[in-house]
Design a binder for these strands. Structure first.
Length: 502
RNA sequence: GCUCCAUUAGCAUAGUGGCUAGUGCAUCCGACUUUCUAUCGGAAGACAAGGGUUCGAUUCCCUUAUGGAGUACCA
């Protein structure tokens, strides 16, 4: 009974993959890899009306960018393909027919308009219209009609669907790995459509048939499917197939307010909800997040290791992940925490890698950036990366390494530039001119010595010095800045400041 | 409305039938004899409510409240 683990991620290509979808994919991937199993991507495109061009490629690109590629799927054919339901179209009808033959399903001829009418009518009376045992004989279907009438309608080319005949008076005990046992009374179930008038199966039929045909051992999907679990279990029973194990992941909720995370929340609060950009919607990748960040915060959304560890690489996740540590309740999405993760990962990145990412920004800002060699850019990056959350913060944090400050922060000037500051800076210039070893450490020793010898205060020297070098009271260690921009430029900046500030 | 699921601080969570309920993010304060959105240190802050069961419940059961999902010839 030790079946090979095969899981699937089965999105429908109706648009860009939402971050919640990526989380579902990630958990499937982790589970598969942990058990040396196979991660299948299946495209559920049974609804032709909602098909969106490019969505499938987007899904594939997103999974690849996150570093969680599928093992089998479109373009990576295994033995149970094809992996797009539209390409498996011819396969489903026979299964629907088999259920009709077994008396587990039936033909229904009711028009959508008629059903809509019933629903509205019931709603107006404060009731819910359920197409099932209690009214199916009053509707137009092969159970209420004679065999001849049914055949007549079919021959006449009337539109019909195939509905599942859900049983009466049964209590179902469903198993969910995350939630345990769930009791369902079958009387409240409706006779779901399995096969549509357009010749396509509905999600429910296609899903169960494909999971069976693809030997899926574990179905890990979003909580929005929990209400369908009864139907799916009933279908497996009707086909006399073994059902896979089910695990329903908690939903991802909006950062504030109620409801699940939506595209609008991202726009309103300024954070991405998609892994990659899609038209006007910004993606995590384009917003400057690393894939490590996305994987890490997604993993902790609805799951935790039971320890205090919060930083996980993909490989660590594979060995630590487990379905029984997945939470039952919805996980609120926290954009601040995602930034915290990126801040962590930016510090871990190698300086040369960050320098490569920074170069295009430098080019955009100033052509002369070209003249700075890699070693210099890497050195700058090493000094500022711990204060950055994104590579896009780098310029703001380091522009003074590349260009002479044009203005001085007014508030800082008012606070730090005293009448005697000019003359102190003048003295400092003459001290700096005498120093030939312009290393940070040596500069610090010499300047501090000079300050003590002359009984000056550190504040009176260091703050104005920083102001003249940087243009504001920010940045890393002053002596590191001096060393990096060099003797000539340092002195130039101080002299320029003395002239401008008096 | 009905069905199912959930409920530990602002947020994410750990944990236990019985010591001061642990951690991270955010917040506030301090330190780093100069800056900081960095780092370090510290502070404040929670078991939804009411009933049971029990010597004892945040932990088990019930009710209520709140939140979520589903209720389509969409997935």
């Amino acid at each position: 009974m030790n079946q090979k683990v095969r899981v699937r991620f089965a999105p429908s290509p109706t648009g860009p993959l939402h971050i919640g979808g990526v989380r579902t994919a990630l958990f499937n991937y982790l589970f598969a890899k942990q058990h040396d199993g196979v991660f299948v991507l299946r495209i559920e495109d049974t609804d032709q009306n909602r098909y969106v061009e490019g969505a499938e490629q987007y899904i594939i690109d997103a999974l690849n960018w996150c570093g969680i590629p599928f093992d089998e799927g479109p373009g990576k054919e295994g033995s149970v393909g094809p992996y797009r339901q539209s390409e498996r179209k011819s396969l489903y009808r026979q299964y629907a027919d088999a259920l009709v033959e077994k008396g587990k399903a039936y033909y229904a001829f009711d028009t959508s308009e008629r059903l809509d009418f019933h629903r509205k009518d019931h709603e107006a009376k404060g009731k819910t219209f359920i197409y099932n045992w209690h009214n199916r004989l009053k509707l137009v279907n092969s159970l209420s009609l004679s065999a001849e009438e049914t055949q007549q309608k079919i021959d006449a080319g009337k539109d019909y669907v195939i509905r599942f005949k859900s049983p009466k008076d049964e209590t179902l005990l469903l198993q969910d790995t995350i939630r345990g046992t769930i009791r369902i009374d079958t009387n409240i179930l409706d006779d779901k459509v399995l096969f549509k008038a357009d010749g396509m199966p509905t999600y429910h039929l296609a899903n169960v048939v494909d999971d069976h045909l693809m030997n899926i051992s574990h179905v890990i999907r979003g909580e929005e499917w929990l209400p369908s679990l009864a139907l799916h279990q009933l279908l497996y029973n009707a086909f006399e197939w073994n059902a896979p194990e089910f695990a329903h992941l908690p939903l991802i909720m909006k950062p504030v307010g109620k409801g699940k995370l939506s595209k609008r929340d991202g726009q309103k609060m300024g954070f991405p909800v998609f892994p990659l950009s899609w038209n006007e919607s910004l993606g995590y990748r384009e917003a400057g997040y690393f894939s490590e960040t996305v994987v890490n915060f997604l993993a902790l959304l609805g799951w935790n290791p039971g320890t205090e560890q919060e930083i996980f690489s993909l490989t660590e996740l594979i060995s630590n992940f487990s379905l029984d540590r997945v939470n039952k309740s919805g996980a609120r999405f926290d954009p601040d925490k995602t930034k915290w993760y990126n801040q962590h990962y930016i510090k871990e990145k190698a300086n040369d890698e960050l320098a490569d990412l920074f170069r295009p920004i430098l080019l955009e800002k100033d052509i002369s950036a070209l003249s700075f060699d890699n070693a210099f850019v890497e050195r700058v990056v090493s000094l500022i990366k711990e204060r950055a959350t994104f590579v896009s913060d780098f310029w703001q944090l380091s522009h003074y390494f590349f260009t002479t400050p044009e203005h001085y922060d007014e508030k800082a000037v008012r606070k730090q530039w005293k009448p005697d500051t000019g003359s102190i800076m003048n003295q400092l210039v003459s001290i700096l001119k005498e120093i030939s070893d312009f290393s940070s450490q040596n500069l610090e020793n010499r300047v501090k010595q000079w300050i003590t010898d002359n009984e000056l205060s550190f504040g009176k020297v260091m703050a104005p010095l920083r102001l003249l070098l940087v243009g504001a009271l920010q940045g890393p260690h002053v002596f590191d800045i001096l060393e990096l921009i060099g003797k000539e430029e340092s002195i130039k900046r101080i002299e320029k400041g003395i002239v401008e500030l008096g």
